[in-house]
């Protein structure tokens, strides 16, 4: 093959009849796999988790959004359920969950979540996805939220250091708060062991009635009832009055978004009871 003639062309000239492009994007998202799996996810949500969803604002959302939800599960079950429910309600490309680092160190879980569109939560990834027209689904509680035991289920943890607010102000994308209740009963975490978890590369080792006891079988979720309440879009740029805020404004807005998620979670929890 002669490369000398090939490289003389314009930088982005189409490459002619080459082998087909990859079926995955840079993050490992596989759209064909996503389309094949989503109907099954919907079936599981409907029949397994008897999901109910309430929307304050009328979907569909025609432009990208930053969906912000509370964590309700140590495995990304909450992300999967919300992603699946939002699937039919956005007319943009699929919603891409932003997940904690540790998810991608778990075999199979990290792989399948990547294939279904999840990426590691960081500013660079989120900005690039929003620019490419995807909506993102963030869980700003982070590991603190994912590591909640059943006894802390109603409490929304702190929302990181405000990266979410910075993202929204930088990109001008609206935030849609979401309250998720129920997945915590699918994996009822009774206790967690931090040191034992670190030994196998996880932030903590959760204990559920079945989990270490039945081995991998313990990963099968309980058929909990899941309730999702979706709030209305917050235009942070308008609320802040600026797109270059100081630290105090960021934390104030951050807390405001957290309050709205907590309110929605209270509504969702009220219905599930």
């Amino acid at each position: 093959m002669d490369a000398g003639t090939r490289v003389e062309g314009p930088p982005d000239a189409p490459r002619g009849a080459g082998p087909p492009r990859s079926r995955t994007d840079l993050w490992g998202f596989d759209p064909a796999f996503y389309r094949a799996v989503m109907p099954w996810c919907e079936w599981v949500c409907e029949r397994g988790f008897r999901t109910t969803m309430t929307c304050v604002e009328r979907p569909p959302w025609r432009s990208p959004r930053i969906f912000v939800a509370n964590h309700a599960s140590f495995l990304p079950l909450d992300a999967l359920v919300v992603q699946c429910l939002l699937d039919s309600m956005v007319s943009t490309p699929p919603v891409r969950p932003l997940l904690e680092d540790y998810v991608f160190t778990i075999p199979y879980v990290g792989l399948w979540m990547s294939r279904l569109g999840s990426v590691r939560a960081c500013q660079e990834n989120a900005v690039l996805l929003l620019q490419r027209g995807y909506s993102v689904l963030a869980f700003p509680e982070g590991v603190k939220g994912a590591g909640k035991t059943l006894f802390d289920r109603g409490r929304v943890q702190r929302f990181g250091r405000g990266g979410l607010v910075r993202l929204a102000l930088k990109t001008g994308v609206g935030i849609v708060p979401i309250g998720v209740s129920g997945p915590e009963y699918a994996y009822p975490v009774l206790a967690r062991f931090k040191r034992l978890g670190r030994a196998i590369g996880l932030p903590f080792l959760p204990v559920t009635p079945t989990l270490p006891l039945l081995g991998p079988l313990g990963l099968f979720p309980f058929p909990a009832r899941v309730t999702v309440v979706v709030g209305e879009t917050i235009d942070l740029r308008r609320e802040a009055g600026t797109d270059d805020p100081d630290e105090a404004v960021v934390l104030r807005l951050n807390e405001r978004v957290r309050k709205r998620v907590a309110d929605l979670l209270a509504r969702a929890g009220g219905r599930a009871a």
Partner: peptide
């Protein structure tokens, strides 16, 4: 790509070659 004015072959082409 902008500086050198050419883009490398895709990963797929590199692999199949």
């Amino acid at each position: 790509r902008a500086e050198f004015g050419f883009s490398p072959r895709s990963t797929r082409e590199a692999v199949s070659d």
